[in-house]
């Protein structure tokens, strides 16, 4: 791991934190969406599996030690034990999976494939951990927990599309990222 890798990891951890500062947008369905999870998607798509995953691990480590960096100014170890703890644990794994899939195409898969990859890692993996966790913490069945979470999916799809557009342009400008 070179110095440049370390700096990039820190940069994307910080970007994910900064995106959490953007005020929430409330969709027509009444569900709030935050820009923060775009940081997870961008880290995977631009830095690849190892650096992207580590950037999000670093971001969560800073949250865990008490910095209020999550969207809405939340922080501290408590957030990992709350109802959305599983989604948070899914973040670094999701970034890793996105990066792993992008790495197979030297970081530049075609548009549609990029979108599928970001959806697999940034939505699929995150919900795969988040929903059972929510079910466990709240003593709900998996089906009930899933129904409760599905309202957030449209916002996630919008963020995945934005991520792919941004990632492709950034890769074009900086091919040897």
């Amino acid at each position: 791991m070179t110095t440049k890798d370390t700096v990039y990891i820190a940069l994307f951890a910080a970007l994910t934190a900064a995106l959490g500062l953007i005020p929430q947008i409330t969709l027509a369905t009444g569900v709030p969406i935050t820009a923060q999870s775009m940081g997870i998607m961008l880290a995977g798509a631009l830095l690849g599996a190892k650096r992207g995953g580590l950037a999000i691990v670093l971001f969560l480590a800073l949250v865990a030690i008490g910095l209020p960096l999550l969207a809405g100014g939340r922080g501290g170890a408590g957030v990992f034990f709350g109802a959305s703890g599983g989604f948070l644990l899914g973040f670094p794994i999701g970034a890793f999976v996105i990066g792993f899939l992008f790495d197979r195409h030297a970081g530049r898969p075609p548009f549609l494939l990029s979108l599928i990859y970001v959806l697999i890692g940034g939505v699929g993996v995150v919900y795969l951990l988040g929903v059972p966790w929510l079910a466990q913490v709240a003593d709900l069945t998996l089906g009930q927990a899933f129904t409760g979470s599905i309202a957030f999916v449209p916002g996630d799809i919008i963020k995945a599309v934005l991520t792919v557009i941004i990632a492709r342009e950034v890769r074009r400008a900086l091919p040897d990222l």
Partner: peptide, 16 residues
């Protein structure tokens, strides 16, 4: 990495 992130957060908040 930790100290760089703490340094970058205000910079990137400005950018955003």
């Amino acid at each position: 990495a930790i100290s760089l992130t703490l340094r970058f957060i205000p910079v990137l908040s400005h950018v955003v």
